[in-house]
Design a protein around this nucleic acid. Structure first.
Ligand SMILES: [Mn+2]
Ligand SMILES: [Mn+2]
Ligand SMILES: [Zn+2]
Ligand SMILES: [Zn+2]
Lengths: 155, 155
DNA sequence: ATACTATATTGGACGAAGTCTAAGTCAAGA
DNA sequence: TCTTGACTTAGACTTCGTCCAATATAGTAT
């Protein structure tokens, strides 16, 4: 975290209060926040921080490879501070909860040459979808209902 | 295609001009359109068709499993008529072109039990990112430039 | 062929997520 | 301490998508 701030300084960043607070939020709980969730937490420490600064800083951190942008479905992007340790995600289609997972195979190896069409393939994103235990339980209680509808939490 | 209309009729759908036209557009070129691209092409055949109907129908077709919704980055969702033949996608990070690809491994098998956290895992989406030959060529011409910037086409 | 009605369509208002800009502020070096 | 270019800010704006009340119509019953 201090190392992060140092790396940023080394890259010529001005260390503003805003950037410091955003770094703190991302460091605190390493979990997948949306930009607005980051903003909400940043405001607690620095009430006048703007949405624009959060978007700017997150975008810059992504460009530097310090955090990762995760898009699941049509919802808001989430920002993943766990960027130096490559991993994939398991997402609950009921409530949106997201967990880091490690897989055993290198997915790039699963793409044969004949399926590359001359592309230079640089990375693969694997996302698993399913029901988390909570949503499964909620469904059981609801008595085999429609299977849809669920308050949308996310971590 | 006619079979699609038949399947819809069998499911109790009213066969309206709008739905017919949307089915035609999706059938014509099997490629990954956004809702607005579908609308633009539908309008050529049925000028008064509304955006709302396109969204409604696409949503219904997805629910029936007749087409698939594809989200790559933060942009508009794309609709994939190639739904009865499961596949993954290879996306050019330069221009956004998207190609269907077949992979050799079942990605779900690459997720160990210990990494499932009690979820019932139902499917995995694998997306490959890279540079298409055109973008690679354009870069070479530009003489090892920044590597960014590129008009965003998509197929 | 006509009437009926549940289902579908429409335009436009609305909303969420994100981008952009012009004016003001401030971190850091001299 | 002064200076200045990098940074921040509020709010307008864009894009993608949803929702609604009013209207039209596919399919069926008569
Ligand atoms: Mn993660
Ligand atoms: Mn496809
Ligand atoms: Zn859940
Ligand atoms: Zn390309």
């Amino acid at each position: 975290m201090d190392d992060l701030l140092q790396r940023l300084r080394d890259r010529g960043w001005r260390l503003t209060a805003q950037r410091r607070v955003i770094a703190e939020v991302l460091d605190g709980e390493h979990i997948h926040f949306t930009a607005d969730e980051v903003h909400a937490r940043a405001v607690e420490r620095l009430p006048e921080i703007s949405r624009a600064s959060v978007y700017n800083t997150l975008g810059e951190l992504v460009a530097l490879g310090e955090i990762t942008e995760v898009t699941t479905d049509g919802r808001a992007k989430r920002y993943d501070p766990n960027a130096h340790h490559p991993h994939q995600h398991l997402v609950c289609s009921g409530c949106g909860t997201m967990r880091d997972v490690q897989i055993t195979e290198d997915p790039i190896r699963a793409l044969p040459e004949g399926e590359r069409f001359g592309f230079t393939v640089s990375n693969a994103v694997v996302t698993y979808y399913g029901r988390c235990p909570d949503c499964a339980a909620a469904e059981a209680v609801a008595g085999g209902g429609t299977g849809s509808g669920q308050a949308r939490r996310t971590a």
